[in-house]
Amino acid sequence: MTSILEVNDLRVYFHTPRGMVKAVDNVTFDVHAGERFGLIGESGSGKSTIALAIMRLIRSPGRIESGEIRLEGENLLALSDEEMRQRRLAGVAMVTQGAMNSLNPVMRIRQQFADGLNSHGETVTVDEAREQLVDLLARVGLKPEAADVYPHQLSGGMKQRVCIALAMSLRPSLIIADEPTSALDVVVQRQVVQTLRQVQEELDAAVILIGHDMGLMAQFASRVGVMYAGKLVEEGPVRAIFRQPEHPYTRILMESLPSLDEKETLQVVKGAPPSAADRPAGCVFHPRCPFVMDRCIQEEPLFREVAPEQWAACHLHDEPAAAHSLSREVAE
């Protein structure tokens, strides 16, 4: 399968007065053409920073220290600012968490759409632009009238769908959706995510969905990556990750999900995620890990393939006996 996006050894550090914060450290993954990739992580894990790095929107004191971000083979980090501006929206578009707030409140939707086209040198007449927009709005299940209204006249779910429509306007090969539904309730969430999925299939674009809702990931993604404290700790096909997580953190995430099927004991995870400024040595997860070994405290585990197409960064997989105990407990 061809990769549309390759992220190699990405490091994004924030240089704060109180020291350097490694928000994203040594992260490598790729996204295939036309794929739905889920990036899972709790707040502060670095998942949104990765999205901003791909868009090259990291602001000071943050800085992309090293690494490569290749979109369709082209290293985005080597482009000039103007070249990068051209890639945004046309090559990679983003739908943000508060996308409803990213719409300009004093411009009609169609004016905002025309803005996007104009800034990329598309010369279209007003009528042509309107026609294109109406087509995009129809794809996200909105009526043509939505083109002529101001954002406040739309509900939260509708605004989020408008943002998806605008993100599609130049047919990007990659759409990044950063928690696009976290401000919406479940019924609207389903509509928005199903819209995103349908659009992704029609355009054959790749989508990176960023979030912390495991349910949403299971419903949307075909492959997922799990972030913890700035590190990618596991990556693999969604079924494999949900059935047989190979990293203890992923496993704990799965177990702490409350069930809708039976009332049960809630699994309490000890400790809390480390602050990005004060990360433990060795494996970042070792202070909370139920399988911690001496080695984990000193040595950082390598990110490697532990099952077909499933990658994890955990020392347990170097020790066959220990790895066995992990998988056995999961099976139970």
């Binding site: 479940v186 019924v187 969430q189 389903r190 995510v193 809702d213 495991m214 349910g215 949403l216 990931m217 299971a218 419903q219 969604v238 079924r239 949900f242 799965m254 999900l257 809708l260």
Partner: peptide
């Protein structure tokens, strides 16, 4: 509408 954390449901 609740997204179930199970890719098969």
């Amino acid at each position: 509408s609740i997204p179930r954390p199970d890719p098969d449901r």
